[in-house]
Amino acid sequence: MFDIFIKTHFAGAHHLRDYPGDCEHPHGHNWKIEVTVRATELDHLGMGIDFTILKRHVKEVIDTIDHCDLNKHEAFLVLNPSSEHIAMYIYDNLVKKLKHDRYSLYSVSVSETDNQGLIYYGNK
């Protein structure tokens, strides 16, 4: 098996509704994103998934949240735009696009800073 990943980022503002602290106030992050696809076999070129394909699909999803007030984004009108919900949003919008006989979406990592983040594996 091969875990193939790309790293990207996006900038956005948010606030966490009903949070008992500073994060309840509007603030921004430069979120770091890592998307991993797990391939069970390689194609005739020796690739699990072409990085170009992976980058294109990830960019399409990231572009929908980049430079937004996430609290005003349709996906987060009810859900708090926490890093966990952002990871779920990215995952859910990629899972069908990255489904193939040889590979599938494995995980989405979201980091608010260099020192804290999470990995979401979907509802498996």
Rank of each mutant, 00 (worst) to 15 (best):
A39H: 06
K124E: 14
V37G: 09
S109Y: 05
H29I: 07
E84P: 02
K32T: 11
N80F: 03
K96H: 14
K72H: 12
C68D: 05
L118F: 04
L94E: 01
L45Q: 14
G28S: 13
H29M: 08
I119D: 11
P26T: 13
Y103W: 08
A13W: 07
G46S: 07
M88P: 00
D22W: 02
V110A: 04
W31Q: 01
V95Q: 11
V37P: 06
D114T: 07
R102L: 14
T64C: 06
E41N: 11
K32D: 12
I33T: 01
E34A: 08
D101W: 00
H44L: 08
D3F: 12
V35Q: 07
L77T: 10
K96M: 11
P81I: 06
A11E: 15
F76N: 06
V110W: 02
D18W: 05
R56A: 15
I33L: 02
D22M: 11
G122C: 03
Y121E: 10
G122Q: 00
Q116C: 14
C68Y: 11
E24I: 12
L45A: 10
D43V: 09
K72L: 15
H57M: 04
E41D: 15
K7P: 00
H73A: 09
Y91I: 07
E41A: 14
S82W: 01
K124V: 11
A75I: 01
L98F: 06
K32G: 05
D18Y: 13
I33C: 00
V95I: 14
G28D: 09
E24Y: 03
Y120R: 05
D22E: 13
S82T: 15
K59Y: 07
K32H: 10
L42K: 14
L118H: 07
H100K: 06
M47C: 08
L77S: 00
H100Q: 06
Y89N: 01
M47I: 08
E24L: 00
I49H: 10
D3M: 06
T52M: 13
F10N: 02
D18R: 07
E24S: 15
R38D: 01
D63P: 02
G122Y: 03
H100P: 07
E74W: 02
N93K: 11
F2K: 10
K99M: 10
S83Q: 11
T8R: 06
F51S: 06
L42H: 01
T113H: 08
S82G: 08
D69T: 04
P81F: 10
T64I: 02
H14G: 04
N30A: 08
D92S: 06
K7L: 02
Y19E: 07
G28R: 07
A13E: 12
K55P: 03
E84W: 09
